Simulated scan of single mutants.
Amino acid sequence: MVGTTSFVKKLGISVMKVSESKSSSWWYNHHMRAASRAILERIPLVDLVLEVRDARIPMSSEYAQLRKFPSSSKNIIVLNKMDLASHSKTKEWMEYFKELNYIPYAINSHNKDNIKEFLNFLQARIRDIRRSTDSSNTQTTTIMLVGIPNVGKSAFANSLHQIGRISATEKGKLKHATVSPHPGETKNITSFKIASNPNIYILDTPGILPPEILDAEISSKLALTGALIDSVVDQSMLAHYFLSILNFSDEYKKWKNISTMDKKENQIINDDHTQDCVVQSVRGALFQEIASFKGKMKDEKDMIQLIEAQFTTLRKAFNVSLDSFEDANSIVATKLINLYRTGRLGHYTLDTLPRTCE
């Protein structure tokens, strides 16, 4: 499920141009180049490498630099943001990675119970490595987190740090990783203690993109999930891409019983687009447009016509009434993408498994 080819191509090409032109001070800037070198130098020295990926794009969010190192028991693929992805598809991707002899683990870095389970798994894995390498007397284990921007590495590091604290004295000396909705905020490699007796340290690293992305489909998925800063992507184009995905999915069918008329006419909707009443209004509006659609989803012209109708309806659902058509659509697009990225409009896995493994 990746939407229509035309939306993927249009969005992907616009992103690729930024990457190829090197005109963006954000794309693979000097911070990323320096961090990339530092990470490559340290990978052979750490005990474990946790490659954090986005569960919505398990393949497209691959950390390309790890290809320079052979797959081994030192590497674990962590599928973060599992709460935003399709549960059944995440299970399939886990099995796929196991078939390739990777060690996968799906997490929600904001779920304490999930982090506790992962920490137990991690400690058991470390014990196995020590036994197999005859290093059971080693007092300190170092683990490196790597990944592309905005897959949630820093939030993951913070959660492991908080859950893994042992003594009350450590509670008073918390050091937090910088967590931001904007990709590329982490600039340096930072160490966090997550366990004692023996000591285990996590190294949080900056998110690194490849110097160029030559695949339009991957570019589109990275843009939609927020791995790229939004200033390099046209928000309306991004919203068109998401709606093409939604329209092909079955997610909207869950909203059948939502009435867009529940909201009183005199009710004022503020700028908080995540308000429950707004979310319900948006869901109901989208369901009605898709359910009443008489065209063919696979026909590009019909799909564009449906999306234009959805934008018109969403202006009412979001209470956007600017005179400028373009400004109104831009606001609608931004609000819509924010709802998608917070999981309020369904759970989607954008990457499809290789045919031989489906």
Rank of each mutant, 00 (worst) to 15 (best):
N270Y: 09
I213D: 00
N114V: 00
Y105T: 01
E41C: 00
Y348N: 06
V2W: 08
K296E: 05
I200Y: 03
S196A: 15
K253F: 03
H347C: 15
N266E: 09
D272F: 07
F293H: 07
I148G: 08
L286R: 08
S330V: 03
T342N: 15
I213S: 02
T5F: 12
R130Y: 06
V15P: 07
V146H: 01
V78S: 04
A124T: 06
R53A: 06
K173T: 10
G295S: 02
V232S: 14
D302G: 02
M1A: 11
M261W: 15
L243S: 08
A124Q: 09
N270M: 05
P211A: 09
A291I: 03
R344M: 13
I43T: 00
I39S: 10
F121S: 04
F156P: 03
T178P: 13
I13G: 08
G152K: 03
Q275K: 14
P70R: 14
F318R: 03
V278A: 07
R42M: 05
N158Y: 08
E41A: 11
L222T: 03
I57N: 13
Y348P: 04
D54W: 11
S109C: 12
S321T: 11
D215H: 04
R355W: 14
V332I: 05
S109D: 02
S180Q: 10
N158H: 09
M32D: 14
I331Q: 10
R355V: 13
L100I: 04
S249E: 07
N114D: 12
N188G: 08
Q280M: 12
M261K: 15
K10D: 09
D323I: 09
V78P: 02
S167I: 01
G284M: 06
T205H: 02
Q305E: 10
A227V: 05
I337Y: 05
I337A: 05
G164Q: 11
A227E: 01
R165K: 13
T141C: 02
S180C: 14
A34Y: 10
S21L: 03
I148Q: 08
N120I: 00
L209E: 04
P58F: 08
A35T: 07
S236P: 01
S196R: 15
I218S: 02
D128A: 12
A285G: 11
K91A: 12
V146P: 04
T178V: 15
D215G: 04
W26I: 11
A155M: 11
S25V: 09
M297P: 00
R315D: 08
H30P: 01
E99R: 15
